[in-house]
Amino acid sequence: MAEITLVEAINQALAFEMQADPNVVVLGEDIAKNGGVFRATVGLLDKFGPERVRDTPLAESMIAGLSIGMASQGLKPVAEFQFMGFIYPALDQIINHASRMRHRTRGRLSCGVVFRTPFGAGIHAPEHHSESTEAIFAHIPGLRVVVPSSPARAYGLLLASIRNPDPVIFLEPSRLYRWAKQVVPNDGKALPLDKCFTLQVGMDITLVTWGAMVKETLAAANRLAKDGISCEIIDVATIKPLDIETILASVEKTGRCIIIHEAARTCGVGAEIAAQVAERGLMFLQAPIQRVTGYDTIVPYARLEKIYIPSENQIIETVNKVMEFA
């Protein structure tokens, strides 16, 4: 079986679910004939036709609002926003309607929509194409925020998100779209939502991360292993709702915790994880919780973006600092 990339796994999941469920509809800008600017939806138009694979006019609030209307009548829309920086016009629809349709109608209407968008820096894209503002969505009651970091998890988590009856913000790390290939059987098997994935078992320190930063975290852990430091790596995967139990169990074992994310530090999801670990697991800790994050700046344009993204070295330095604490 051929190995596929993360973006090909997204495509494979979409095609599988469209075949299995006639209610699944995909819509967005340039997603039909062009197959999406990253080719995530390539081939779907030919397979499923223009009724279910829709190029929309160029208006993001519209994409979200249409999806809410469609979902209210039992369709399963999977809407693509071309880049995370362009999802902001849709915040009104997502926050004021998608997240609360079930609540405000006492379950009479619901909003089973997947809002997909590539996110993160590191692909030499224009301004506004490199955002990591997942914390905005993680703050909104009623939403799920799901972030895959490998082809297999992209496939399984996207299937789970489409089958989920509530709205999901599905953030695809564009830096990982074509990074690593993996065999992903097209078996239609979903992975669990609301669960962390332990990517590597270790004894000395817990590294908590998600999305594209999984790449640097794995590499850093590899180098640290040569120095005899055993890292446990947790891919949070669903950052809302948060599976704090898996993180706490790991911290109980290792006694140390570093949270690594590309997003700006202040009020990032790392702050929430740190708070919950402190609230529930202070007694496990042998050293202060640390964060390795993007700076509290605008994500810079292409020339500085590599400097903005937390590096393997920053992770290693922080791990060494924490290991020295006690």
Binding site: R54, G65, G69, M70, D92
Partner: peptide, 18 residues
């Protein structure tokens, strides 16, 4: 939220067309 519902109507109509 003023005017947001116009889009829901268009979405429902899209569902009918599909």
């Amino acid at each position: 939220p003023i005017g947001t519902q116009m889009l829901h109507a268009a979405g429902i109509a899209t569902a009918f067309r599909i």
